[in-house]
């Protein structure tokens, strides 16, 4: 019995399709690695559910022993004089030490930075700020960590940029580095200050 005449297109498809699939997969993989390198793709990042929304309704006590006013949702309602940064931190948090100089620099630039001490003892948080300097103009204590959950916080440090209308525009989970300020926070501050 003889073979049917082979269809040349079929042969080409059989050869080409796997190559095409492999090429596509390679391209996807390359894009993923590139994203991991530049930080634009982070498979562990939890995207914030609050972007484009007002902060959750909350009140918190001031940090005991500090003379700074506390922070509540009412302080973040528009219209604000300028965009503000809300920063969750703790004295026990090592990356908070890394980001601290950037917060001090923002304070020098006149950006209001509001601090929320997350699951921290007041004395420890005060000691942390006394040793390293205090970048905050408002300071609240969330020792049970319940308000942080309302914000969708899943670790410290975590920061939220709130525009003049009182809308969350940016969330950064992890330390704010010089690169973060240059690439993200700086341009956003300029944009939302207008």
């Amino acid at each position: 019995m003889s073979e049917a005449t082979p269809n040349p297109w079929r042969r080409r498809a059989l050869l080409g399709l796997p190559l095409l699939a492999a090429g596509g997969a390679g391209l996807g993989f390359w894009a993923m690695l590139r994203g991991l390198g530049t930080g634009s793709y982070d498979p562990h990042g939890v995207p914030s559910a609050l972007l484009g929304k007002a902060p959750p309704d909350f009140t918190l006590p001031p940090l005991a022993g500090s003379d700074l006013p506390t922070l509540a949702a009412a302080d973040l309602r528009g219209a604000l004089a300028r965009p503000v940064l809300v920063n969750f931190f703790a004295s026990w948090c090592v990356p908070c030490v890394i980001e601290h100089p950037q917060l001090m620099a923002l304070k020098r630039q006149g950006v209001p930075v509001f601090g929320i001490a997350y699951k921290d003892k007041a004395a420890d948080a005060l000691g942390f700020l006394a040793r390293r300097g205090n970048p905050y103009t408002r300071l609240a204590a969330d020792e049970p960590g319940r308000v942080a959950i309302d914000w969708g916080v899943y670790g410290v440090p975590e920061s939220y940029l709130i525009d003049r209308q009182g809308i969350i525009r940016w969330r950064w989970a992890g330390p704010i580095t010089e690169d973060t300020v240059a690439a993200d926070l700086g341009p956003l501050l300029r944009r939302y200050s207008a």
């Binding site: 939890v46 995207p47 914030s48 559910a49 959750p56 959950i149 309302d150 914000w151 969708g152």
Partner: peptide, 8 residues
């Protein structure tokens, strides 16, 4: 929880 942490 979905309101706070999204689909994740």
């Amino acid at each position: 929880l979905h309101d706070r942490y999204g689909d994740f």
